[in-house]
C-alpha cells in the first residue's frame, strides 16, 4: 500500500489499557485503540460485551451510573478525559451522543435543537444555527413549516434525525452513536447512514451497531469486541472495515461477521 493511499490523521481519541467497572464487576478489560479523525468507526460484538459501556465512558456519560468507574487512560487530543480537574460537562460538549432510542426533549422541534447552544451560551443567530443543524441532519425540509410543534410528534426516523441535529448543534468534534438505527425501518436506516457519510467530513463518528451490513457499508474502521470467560469484554481485532470483513485474522471475528456466532 502506498503511503498516499491512506489518510494519515492524528487520532482524536486514544484509549490506553482501559478497564471499565460497574462496582466490582469488570465489564470491559484492557482496551487500547486510537480512533482516527473524520472517519466512522464501528464498534461491533455480541450483546453484553460492553460496547455501550465503552462508548458511554468516552464522553463520561457513565459518570451518571452509580458505581461505574474507569481505569487506564482515555486521551482526547492527548489530554486525559478522566484527568484531574476535567469537567465532564465540557467533555460532553465536545463529544456528543446519539442514543439507541430516539429521545427528543418534550419541547418544540426548534427548542430541541436550540437547547444545546443555549445551555452552552453559544453566541450568534440561533435561527441560523437551528436551520443549519436541521439541514445537516437532512430534516429541514420535513420540519421547516412546523418548527414550533413538539419534537415528539415526529416519526421515529425523524425523531432520530432530530436527535442528530440536536447533537451537532453544539458543534462537537466527536459524535458517539449507540445503535442509532435499531428502532428504525430500513429506509430511515439508509437515510441515517447517508447522513453519517456526509457528517464525517466535519465530525469523527463512533457508532455501535448490531447490523453487520451497516458496519460494512457505512464505516471506515471496525473494532470487534467479545466477552471472555470472566464476562469482561475485550478487543479481539480492529482495523479498516474492508480488511476486517474480508480478511479477518481471528477465527472469532470471522465467525461473528459472517453471522455464525453472536
Amino acid at each position: 500500500m502506498s503511503i498516499d493511499s491512506v489518510t494519515v490523521t492524528e487520532p482524536v481519541i486514544r484509549l490506553e489499557a482501559v478497564d471499565l467497572y460497574y462496582g466490582t464487576f469488570r465489564a470491559v478489560r484492557d482496551i487500547s485503540y486510537a480512533f482516527p479523525a473524520n472517519a466512522i468507526t464501528a464498534l461491533i460484538g455480541p450483546s453484553g460485551c460492553g460496547k455501550s459501556t465503552l462508548l458511554r465512558s468516552i464522553n463520561r456519560m457513565n459518570d451518571l451510573v452509580p458505581g461505574a468507574r474507569a481505569t487506564g487512560r482515555m486521551l482526547y487530543h492527548g489530554e486525559d478525559l478522566y484527568g484531574h480537574g476535567v469537567d465532564p460537562v465540557e467533555v460532553r460538549r465536545r463529544i456528543g451522543m446519539v442514543f439507541q432510542k430516539p429521545n427528543p426533549f418534550p419541547k418544540s422541534i426548534y427548542d430541541n435543537v436550540a437547547f444545546g447552544p443555549r445551555v452552552n451560551g453559544i453566541k450568534g443567530d440561533l435561527d441560523d444555527l437551528v436551520e443549519a443543524s436541521l439541514r445537516r441532519a437532512a430534516l429541514w425540509d420535513d420540519v421547516k413549516d412546523k418548527l414550533r410543534q413538539s419534537g415528539l410528534a415526529l416519526s421515529g426516523g425523524q425523531q432520530q434525525r432530530l436527535c442528530i441535529a440536536r447533537a451537532i448543534a453544539t458543534e462537537p468534534e466527536v459524535i458517539l452513536m449507540d445503535e442509532p438505527c435499531s428502532a428504525l425501518d430500513p429506509r430511515s436506516t439508509l437515510q441515517i447512514e447517508e447522513l453519517m457519510l456526509e457528517l464525517k467530513t466535519r465530525y469523527t463518528i463512533i457508532i455501535v451497531t448490531h447490523n453487520m451490513q451497516q458496519a460494512a457499508r457505512a464505516s471506515d474502521e471496525t473494532v470487534f469486541l467479545t466477552m471472555g470467560d470472566d464476562r469482561a469484554g475485550y478487543l479481539v481485532e480492529a482495523g479498516t472495515t474492508s480488511d476486517l470483513f474480508t480478511n479477518p485474522r481471528s477465527q472469532l471475528t470471522e465467525d461473528y461477521v459472517s453471522g455464525r456466532f453472536g
Binding site: N59, M61, L64, P88, V89, E90, R92, R93, R94, G96, M97, V98, F99, K101, N103, P104, F105, P106, F115, G116, V119, N120, C163, R166, A167, A169, T170
Partner: peptide, 24 residues
C-alpha cells in the same frame, strides 16, 4: 433518557434539573 439527552449536549446538572426535569 431525557436526562441523558440533556447531559449529552453538554448541559450541567443544574441545567438538566431546571430546564428538563422540573418542567417535565
Amino acid at each position: 433518557s431525557i436526562r441523558e439527552a440533556g447531559y449529552g449536549v453538554g448541559a450541567s446538572r443544574w441545567q438538566v434539573t431546571a430546564k428538563l426535569v422540573l418542567p417535565a
